[in-house]
Simulated scan of single mutants.
Amino acid sequence: MSYTTVDKSLYDDYYDPTNTEGVLCNNTTVRAFGRVFLPTLYSLVFILGFIGNSLVVCVMVKFRRTSNMTDICLFNLALSDLLFVLTLPFWSYYITKTEWILGDFLCTVLTALYTLGFYGNIFFLVMMTLDRYVVIVHAHTMARHRSVRVGIVLSLFLWALSLCASLPTIIFTKVERNEAGFMMCQQQYPEDTKWRQFSYLQMNFLGLLLPFFIMVICYGRIILTLVNIKSTKKHKAIKLICIIVVVFFCFWTPYNLVIFFRFLQTLHFFGDCTNVYNISLAMQWAEVIAFSHCCLNPIIYAFAGQKFMALVLKLLRKWLPICFGRSSCESSERRSSVYSRSSETKILSIAVA
């Protein structure tokens, strides 16, 4: 939900019935649509995201002795997604009640968790991309630096970076009574400052432009390296890489475009009531599409890898022995073992891990 630096727009912007010229606009339809549409879809995102990412975290904690740089990236990516989705039920409740009744403390804490999860998600996606680039394109020069200790240090640095990116949102988030008399948990930027414009541009740069640029450059070089490998499995790796880039672009571009339109609105573009209504309605659709990406992360980055899937089946077999038999788990483990015999297949296994 855009309760962040990202765009705390549910009650701050796209429920604000005033256009850029101070004229009162009728946004009742948007509010009514949001009260039905958003809680339902946020609940679905929460359920799917919580199950998938919790399973990733459980597998990583259970089999932590097998950890490497890739596992550390997966663990932190799933953890950031969990922080993100755990706040969605509270925002859904907020939308339904149309007023914040949970107090100042929860308003600040939930905003902090949300923004940390949001930026953590983006930064650890970038970290995974760079890790694959290093181990595949520069396997003989830089791959030796992929130690667990380096992974932990980089993870701590990225969490600190996520906190820094989140600080403006956390600092300016307050519970205040609006003109209609309702208590709102939203960003209150100082008047005559550029903080709101800065938050929109920060979102566009850190949330789409920078990670997409890094993904295209790194995965482009990775594909060129994989093409020269004589193996039929390279097609699966290349296909998965294309899916990663296309899914990220398709899920996050609409949201960032609407954020950019918000930025233009602050500069008095698209300020009439018709555009205010259209952008507000577009935000509701775009943010649900964007936030659904956290449900796909476990599938794309974790469950697609044979090694990780073998560990998942092993854990599920322990928890649900009736549903997951020994044969499926053992066959997966055998495939994972065969999959890592030569140096080229090791590269391929990392590409699809």
Rank of each mutant, 00 (worst) to 15 (best):
residue 188 Q to G: 15
residue 193 T to Y: 05
residue 89 P to V: 04
residue 331 S to I: 12
residue 35 R to L: 13
residue 314 K to A: 00
residue 9 S to C: 14
residue 196 R to A: 10
residue 83 L to C: 03
residue 305 G to E: 04
residue 11 Y to T: 10
residue 348 L to P: 06
residue 338 V to P: 10
residue 15 Y to N: 10
residue 211 P to N: 07
residue 209 L to V: 13
residue 117 G to W: 00
residue 39 P to R: 05
residue 182 F to I: 15
residue 183 M to W: 15
residue 224 L to H: 12
residue 116 L to M: 09
residue 284 Q to K: 03
residue 4 T to A: 12
residue 345 T to V: 11
residue 149 R to S: 09
residue 325 G to A: 14
residue 158 L to V: 08
residue 309 M to Q: 02
residue 139 A to C: 05
residue 4 T to E: 12
residue 45 V to Q: 05
residue 291 F to Q: 14
residue 249 F to W: 12
residue 127 M to H: 04
residue 321 P to Y: 01
residue 125 L to Q: 14
residue 332 S to W: 01
residue 290 A to P: 00
residue 179 E to W: 13
residue 26 N to A: 13
residue 245 V to E: 04
residue 294 C to H: 07
residue 195 W to K: 12
residue 238 I to V: 14
residue 267 L to I: 03
residue 290 A to K: 04
residue 159 W to R: 03
residue 27 N to R: 14
residue 326 R to E: 06
residue 75 F to D: 00
residue 74 L to N: 09
residue 39 P to M: 03
residue 236 K to D: 09
residue 347 I to V: 10
residue 30 V to E: 13
residue 245 V to R: 01
residue 31 R to W: 06
residue 300 I to R: 09
residue 307 K to H: 13
residue 28 T to N: 13
residue 244 I to F: 08
residue 44 L to F: 04
residue 166 S to K: 01
residue 211 P to H: 07
residue 69 M to E: 02
residue 100 W to F: 08
residue 300 I to C: 14
residue 311 L to K: 00
residue 1 M to N: 15
residue 204 N to Y: 02
residue 287 E to C: 12
residue 225 T to I: 09
residue 322 I to L: 11
residue 210 L to P: 02
residue 337 S to D: 08
residue 290 A to T: 00
residue 338 V to D: 08
residue 95 I to W: 00
residue 244 I to R: 07
residue 220 G to P: 04
residue 134 V to T: 12
residue 259 I to E: 07
residue 317 R to M: 00
residue 237 A to Q: 08
residue 328 S to K: 08
